[in-house]
């Protein structure tokens, strides 16, 4: 019986993570790119983003829970917002740290601003963006454990119940799969990064 519940929990957990990280990644990428186009204003916007990043995921879940009630959508929105910040931050700093020489060379070759962004700036910022994705994923898996605090399943159910009832077996049954899930996801993204990244930029990422 535990076995079936465990599989259910893992599936729920993975769904939460995949959906929220995807939404968060897309949002973060877009907003990061937009902010990188207006660096003058971003200098003021950015510290605010950093402050938001220090807010623990539980607060997002909590606030939305109070507004939206106990629905899976609450968890997904909360986790998406949370996952967005690391991606946003890394996209923005990644693009801004691309050497100006490359940007000028792109301009000098006759690339329009869009072409320069998509052909040169973003590919060069790519290692940073993926590092942001990795952070977002690992954090989201971690905070998804908390989804159980508002009774919405996931591996946290086991841990939470185990902790409250002092049942070590339950704790371990939830904690170990969650840990493995996170480690595997991290390793997968590392693999993905190596695969996607061209030979040319790999050296840069190592720096």
């Amino acid at each position: 019986m535990y076995g079936k519940m465990l599989i259910n929990s893992i599936v729920t957990h993975v769904c939460y993570v995949i959906i929220s990280v995807t939404i968060g990644f897309v949002l973060g990428l877009i907003i990061g790119i937009l902010l990188s186009r207006i660096p003058k204003y971003s200098a003021y916007i950015f510290p605010i983003v950093s402050i938001f990043q220090t807010i623990p995921g539980i607060v997002f879940i909590g606030v939305l829970f109070l507004y939206l009630g106990m629905k899976p959508v609450t968890v997904i929105i909360a986790l998406s917002i949370y996952a967005m910040f690391p991606v946003l931050k890394n996209t923005y700093t990644g693009i801004l740290s691309v050497d100006e020489g490359y940007v000028e060379a792109a301009k000098g070759c006759g690339m329009s601003p869009y072409q320069a962004l998509f052909k040169v700036e973003l590919p060069l910022a790519f290692p940073n963006v993926i590092a942001g994705l990795r952070l977002a994923t690992v954090y989201t898996i971690s905070w998804a454990v908390l989804a159980s605090t508002i009774g919405l399943g996931g591996l946290g159910d086991f841990v939470y119940q185990g902790v409250s009832s002092n049942n070590n077996t339950l704790i371990i049954a939830g904690a170990i799969p969650a840990a493995i899930l996170a480690v595997v996801a991290g390793a997968l993204i590392d693999r993905l990064q190596k695969k996607i990244m061209s030979r040319g930029t790999r050296g840069e990422a190592a720096k």
Binding site: V138, W143, V159, I171, G174, I176, A182, V183, G186
Partner: peptide
């Protein structure tokens, strides 16, 4: 690196055991 990847609540749960 792996230690930091493990979800906090899971890590705390394991230590609590």
């Amino acid at each position: 690196d792996i230690l930091q990847t493990i979800p906090t609540l899971a890590l705390l749960g394991i230590i609590m055991v």
